[in-house]
Nucleic acid binder design. Structure first.
Lengths: 193, 193
DNA sequence: AATTACAATGAGTCTATACTCATTGAATGG
DNA sequence: CCATTCAATGAGTATAGACTCATTGTAATT
């Protein structure tokens, strides 16, 4: 049985994580603890009651995010019947996290090393499931004779390039909503014989 | 006729630009003016005699870099006989600036707005010449019926993705030297019928 | 009811780094 | 040869932002 205090503490921790997620999504990772505390409606010092450092907060946040995203991608890889369906579904999931994900890829190099590693895991998981789906597809359809990791990297490169240049391509609406279908179609056209 | 003083001043300015270029290439743009001054063998205050702010120094630096790179790409677009030759030559030029260029794309979002705009110009110039070369090629060879800007963005996405993940793909040697030819070959295979 | 534990507070400390400016000494010009 | 200019200096200032800790008030325990 959880005491009132424990519950309160957990709530506060959750509140910080949620607020940090929202604030970082909007302002990027240079947002300060002061802003997060204000938005969360708590005092500045409280952040450090729950997390020993911003670095630690950030890492917890990315870990949680990675677990979520990884889980969804895993599910997609199992349920999708072909590569087209998988790519579409993948972009739909990514679209839900678009702002945060875009911040991650845009500012990755300025994150603490721990956070970078945690984020790199998300990449590995995605690569793994992507490869599975393509291998399955190869038995059914003609896909160009190109190493699978290069096919994957072309896909990720294309999606990341668009996300990173959202200001250029789709300044006024979510990028994946605007360009997801077109990018999927073009990518499929490229990899097929 | 230039006085000894003018020469001295120009030299110091050049020295600062060169040193900043080298330091930023190695350490990223979070490198401090203190480090640049030390490496340049001048005192800290001198930096601010020549540039009103780090922001201004950075912008001058990127402008100069962009002019160089733009000029070379322009030349390549005119001299290359086909797309394969152009892409090869393009990567060779980029390889000379690899470290700095990679820092730019990795840390772009944390640069001051001026610098981001200056850098965006480099992208436009590249896109323009790239398109020219592909249009020329289209008359000679079968290239998939895909809008040219998407072909360009796929190429840039692929190259940037590899540069941004250099640690993963080629931690111990320049990335473009290691992967340039392979990436060119795969890209050409993708866009041809 | 009294005592203890502890989540939360927020004013205050510490550090990093951009930027300033009075001073210096060499180059320039009359 | 003296006066003036100005590039260069580097100790000093200002600011931002992470992190601390003595204090507070409420929940838990006795």
């Amino acid at each position: 049985m959880k005491s009132k205090r424990q519950l309160q503490k957990e709530n506060t921790r959750k509140k910080i994580i949620e607020t940090a997620y929202a604030v970082y999504s909007e302002q990027g990772f240079s947002a300060t603890t002061a802003v997060i505390a204000r938005e969360a409606g708590i005092s500045h010092g409280t952040v450090f009651v729950h997390f020993p450092s911003v670095e630690n907060l950030l890492c917890s946040l990315i870990e949680e995010f990675g677990d979520d995203l990884g889980l969804e991608i895993h599910r997609l890889a199992e349920t999708s019947s072909d590569i087209e369906e998988f790519l579409r579904a993948y972009l739909n999931v990514l679209a839900r996290y678009e702002k945060f994900y875009t911040r991650l890829i845009a500012e990755r190099s300025s994150l603490p090393e721990d956070s970078q590693l945690t984020f790199a895991n998300i990449g590995s998981i995605t690569a793994y499931h992507f490869s599975q789906v393509v291998e399955r597809e190869r038995k059914v359809q003609q896909i160009k004779n190109i190493p699978i990791h290069l096919i994957f990297n072309t896909w990720m490169g294309l999606i990341h390039y668009y996300l990173l240049n959202k200001d250029l391509f789709s300044p006024d609406m979510p990028l994946l909503e605007r360009f997801g279908p077109e990018l999927t179609a073009v990518f499929l056209k490229l990899i097929k014989e």
